[in-house]
Simulated assay, not measured.
Amino acid sequence: MAENKLKHEQIQYLEFLSNDIARAKDFYTKCFGWKFTDYGTGYTAFEGDYVDGGFTIGKPVNGSILVVLYSDDIELSKNKVISHGGTIVQDIFSFPGGKRFQFTDLDGYELAVWSL
């Protein structure tokens, strides 16, 4: 983990449950370019430019937290989510400060992507 990612009182690591870690790795690599490091068969850590986290074996529980990702090109991000099997649950909409959409990944987690 790069030192420049360590910001005081900022979310630093996200951990997800997944029924299929290989499938989760494939989805997030293709959609967002995350890099993965496996730690045994039941855990993989991921690293993105501004986020770190991991996936462990377990049953996903939707609705407990909404992870929001930033995109420079919201249409491109939406199209990647769709083409790799994600489901759009709320199409792109405007809000004060930008626009966003929400989707579910292949484990059923709901996430959002926003842009200026």
Rank of each mutant, 00 (worst) to 15 (best):
E3H: 11
D49H: 09
F95V: 04
E75L: 10
L106A: 10
V81S: 10
R100D: 11
K59R: 09
D72A: 02
W114E: 14
F32M: 12
G40D: 04
T44S: 15
N79M: 06
Y28K: 05
W114D: 13
F16K: 01
D26A: 15
H8N: 12
S71I: 01
G98F: 07
E15L: 08
T29F: 09
P96M: 09
V68G: 03
L76N: 14
S77W: 11
A112S: 13
M1K: 10
Y39N: 15
F36Y: 08
E15W: 02
G53V: 06
Y39C: 11
D38F: 11
D72S: 02
D38I: 07
T41E: 15
R100M: 14
L106S: 09
Y28N: 04
E110W: 01
I88C: 09
S64K: 10
G48M: 10
Y13A: 14
Y13T: 12
V61G: 00
F16H: 00
N19K: 15
F55Q: 04
I82C: 11
G48C: 08
K5I: 11
T41N: 15
G108F: 00
V89W: 02
N19V: 07
S71Y: 00
R23S: 13
L6M: 12
P60I: 00
L116C: 01
N62E: 11
G53K: 03
T29G: 06
F32P: 02
V61P: 00
N19Y: 04
A45M: 14
I88V: 15
Q10S: 12
N4L: 05
I74D: 01
L106D: 11
D52E: 15
Y28T: 07
V113C: 14
R23E: 13
N4F: 05
T44E: 12
N4K: 10
I65Y: 05
I92K: 06
P96T: 09
T37H: 08
I57F: 01
K78A: 08
N79R: 10
I88Y: 11
D73N: 14
Y50L: 12
V89T: 15
G108Y: 00
G53Q: 03
F93L: 03
A112R: 08
T104E: 11
G42H: 12
G58D: 01
N79K: 12
I21R: 09
Y43D: 06
I88P: 04
I88W: 12
Y70K: 06
T104Y: 06
N62I: 05
G42P: 08
Y109G: 02
Q10E: 13
F32N: 04
G85H: 06
F32L: 11
G86H: 12
G63M: 08
A112Y: 08
S64E: 11
M1G: 13
N79D: 13
N79F: 03
F55N: 03
I57G: 00
E15C: 07
L106K: 09
D91E: 12
A112W: 10
Y39V: 14
Q12P: 00
E47A: 15
C31T: 15
F95I: 05
G85F: 04
L106R: 10
I88D: 14
F103Q: 03
K30M: 05
F55I: 05
L111D: 03
V113Q: 09
R23F: 03
A45T: 14
L14C: 09
E3Q: 09
L106I: 11
K99R: 15
E75A: 09
Q90K: 14
G58A: 11
